[in-house]
Design a protein around this nucleic acid. Sequence first.
DNA 1: TACGTCGATCAAAACGTTTTGACTCACAAC
DNA 2: GTTGTGAGTCAAAACGTTTTGATCGACGTA
Lengths: 338, 338
Amino acid sequence: MSGRRVTIRDVAERADVSISTVSHAFSGSRPISAETRERITRAANELGYEPNPSARSLRTGRSGIVGLILRPRFALVGTSDRAETFNRLVGSVATEALRRKTGLIHVPDIDDPRAAKVPMDGCIVAHPYSGDRVLTEVLRRHIPVVTVEEDPERPELPWAVRLDYPPVVDRLLDHLKRQHASDIMLLTGTESNAWNVRTRESYRAWCRTNGVPARIDELSEGLTHEEAAQLIGPLLAAPDRPDAIVVATSDFAALIARVAAAQGVRVPDELMIASFTDSEHSRTADPAITAMDLNHENLAKEAVELMLARIAGAEAPEKPVVISPVLHLRASTLRSPH
Amino acid sequence: MSGRRVTIRDVAERADVSISTVSHAFSGSRPISAETRERITRAANELGYEPNPSARSLRTGRSGIVGLILRPRFALVGTSDRAETFNRLVGSVATEALRRKTGLIHVPDIDDPRAAKVPMDGCIVAHPYSGDRVLTEVLRRHIPVVTVEEDPERPELPWAVRLDYPPVVDRLLDHLKRQHASDIMLLTGTESNAWNVRTRESYRAWCRTNGVPARIDELSEGLTHEEAAQLIGPLLAAPDRPDAIVVATSDFAALIARVAAAQGVRVPDELMIASFTDSEHSRTADPAITAMDLNHENLAKEAVELMLARIAGAEAPEKPVVISPVLHLRASTLRSPH
DNA sequence: TACGTCGATCAAAACGTTTTGACTCACAAC
DNA sequence: GTTGTGAGTCAAAACGTTTTGATCGACGTA
């Protein structure tokens, strides 16, 4: 706080050169004599000079900062399981950005006029909704953007990393079928992001291919565990109870397992359970729950890489980068042979 | 990308006023006639004008951005359990910052000249080491700082949030004693942050008070699970095996539980286990492991609040804000009465 | 009438950099 | 002896805002 910040002008004065010389000395953009350079660095050190990032980026048009916008609504409220998903994605992106020596900023709600406006060279938008309003805004401002998972209404954006669901969903459903499931139900989420939309499609396609009717119901991501339990109870008690349920989130999967246990429905023998996200929850539940892992770490790594390439002026890639989810088969879908 | 960015000058031209009038219209710092204001906002909308954050903060000296520096070395490498700690803290701070409509930036290594320099009004430094070099650098630059947990060598900094270990450590150790533990060993971490330093002190103090010898060993946070297992095996096989172990991290706690199981040492009857961090791991291990939860969510909330107060020019508080860790007693330390 | 006040606007300065064009030497090449 | 070249330096412009002082009517008050 002690008085004014020290500027390049102070350094120049102390080293008895012009400010442009100081600038050149630091950037190396022009030759500077060894003797002068020495004087300048000494002056800078003595004064504790640090270039002002705002001034620098105003001039250069670059801030060295990448923005991050997470679209899941569950960013701010939600169960611990959702928080885990959020935290894991944020942590992964941050880790990768740090490794690349670039600043990563969490962008406050971009169209709230009261929110701070931040300088960024580009922006990663993760899990946009259909026709996502924030993504629209970012595009309108001509901010270079990379999406993690596409906006289902804008699948054409080439700067994207996306997950390849169909093979993994197929493998999961094939597996269930081999375990003698004859009535596989899908409890899908209600948010209109690619994860919900495309896993649902994959399920439908598999059903068509296998000549079985699709059986889909929705379970909103916004439900509390109590509310969800209210819906699941009757489903498991009904005469036409499915013999396998694939549910969007792993916390609901764990919840179904608990409800099943309470109603005396045996897992996996009478009911198999699997989910489209993984978490510590599903790993350590009893029985452990089969889950598709969204591979956030790789998603994050590729997204940051793509973003930096785009900022550096690279050509748009032909196609999005594709990452494969990882399937973890666990006890909840492994029936003992009899 | 289409051509140049649109500036306040373009808006002024289009609305046929001076640029200062445009600025006043947006900031409301001087009265502007309704008719003019209308023309200006229309022009701004048509052009898609957004003020340049760098120019603004250059002029005002404020960026609306808070920096975040996480000191645990395990930020970038480590087991999934450490990643969970990292992720949870990052996620909590980010969530709180977003709620407060301020930008939050992960600061790339502050004294790496190749790393991007970022504009920030202040900086949160979490879990600094003793005499932390990064904290020193931040202070040298007169960047307003708030620490999460103090630097053990600089306990006097008033702008801090810290955890109140002694009562909770006492409660844990009292509990173990009541469960008939007579030889409680502490496996402390080796990093010199407040968490390690102060929990160790608390343990020592309790031992003094209770007239039992302190038994402390170190288990470096940097060890892989394999390496740690190498050390733990002999400890559990030795004739003077303790009947209770308190270990710093929850992943090592879970590891000890596994080693114990492999060696036929019954938990909790022959060996009780507890840890100074909590995680999904310890919650769902079998048996579930007693743990102290660092309460990252509250830590984060208070830290952001303090930071914003400091930036807004508030007086330095008398004392640091104190948060209480939460103790979760679980099966690993609950002996069945016999 | 003279005077202060207020609303509405403008022009200019300032924030702290980077970059560009120009200048001065010294030295080598023709 | 001119010409060219490169090293080393400086002055000035530019980046896009916000803020301050000034101007100019209109209006109410002494």
